Amino acid sequence: MKNLLVLTLLMFTFFASKAQIKVDSVALNKKRNVPVTQFGVASFYADKFEGQRTCTDVVFTQKKLTAACNTFPLNVWIKVTNLRNHKSVNVKINDRMHPSNPRLIDMSKSAALALGYTGHGLTKVKIEYLGKNKPDEDDIADNN
C-alpha cells in the first residue's frame, strides 16, 4: 500500500510538472519551448519583397511594423531592441525566413528605421515576447 502511494505521488508530480506553464519560455509547439528573450542579428527586407504575400497570407509592405522570425510563433507581438543605440520597436511576426538564414529576425524597413540601422544593414538585437494581443499604440515605438 505504501509503495502504491509513493508511485501515485511520483506519477502525479511528473505529470503536473509537464503541465505547468513555464514563465521563462513561450510554447512554439508541444515539442519545443522558445526563450522569451533572445539575442541575435537583425536584417531588414529588401524592397523586391514589397507586395508579395507572407506565409500568413498578408501582403507585405515596408510601411508596417512587421517581421519574419523562425523562432517565435506566427501572429505574435515582440519587442525588438537595437543593442547599439537602445532604440526599440514592437513588431508583429507574420512571416518566416528561409531555414538556412543565420539571422534571428528580418524586419520591415519602417521597423528598421525606428531602430536606426538601415544604414548598416544588420544590427545586434534583443527580442522579447509580448503576446498575441497588439500592444498599446503608445508602446509601438520607443525611440529614446
Score class of each variant (00 low, 15 high):
V23S: 15
V23E: 12
D24W: 12
V26Q: 00
V26K: 00
A27E: 15
A27T: 15
L28S: 07
N29A: 07
N29K: 07
K30E: 14
K30C: 09
K30L: 12
K30W: 03
R32K: 15
R32V: 15
R32A: 13
N33P: 00
V34D: 04
V34A: 03
P35K: 05
P35R: 05
P35V: 06
F39I: 14
G40T: 11
V41T: 15
V41L: 15
V41R: 12
A42Q: 07
A42G: 07
A42E: 08
F44N: 00
Y45L: 09
Y45I: 08
Y45S: 07
Y45V: 03
A46C: 04
A46P: 03
K48R: 14
K48N: 13
K48L: 10
K48S: 15
E50H: 12
R53I: 09
T54Q: 05
C55V: 14
C55S: 14
C55A: 13
T56D: 06
T56P: 04
T56V: 08
T56Y: 05
D57V: 04
D57N: 14
V58I: 14
V59Q: 09
F60G: 02
F60C: 06
F60L: 09
T61D: 02
Q62C: 02
K63V: 08
K63F: 02
K63L: 10
K64R: 07
K64H: 06
A67W: 00
A67M: 08
A67Y: 02
A67Q: 01
A68N: 05
A68V: 01
C69H: 08
C69A: 10
T71S: 14
T71L: 13
F72V: 05
P73Q: 07
P73F: 02
P73E: 05
P73H: 03
L74V: 02
N75K: 08
N75Q: 11
V76Y: 01
V76P: 01
V76E: 00
V80Q: 01
V80E: 02
V80A: 05
T81H: 06
T81E: 08
T81W: 01
T81R: 06
N82Y: 10
N82K: 13
N82W: 09
L83Q: 12
R84L: 12
N85L: 08
N85P: 06
H86Y: 14
H86W: 10
K87M: 08
K87Y: 05
S88H: 05
V89W: 03
V89S: 00
N90S: 10
N90L: 02
N90T: 10
N90K: 06
V91Y: 00
K92D: 01
N94K: 03
D95G: 06
R96Q: 01
R96L: 11
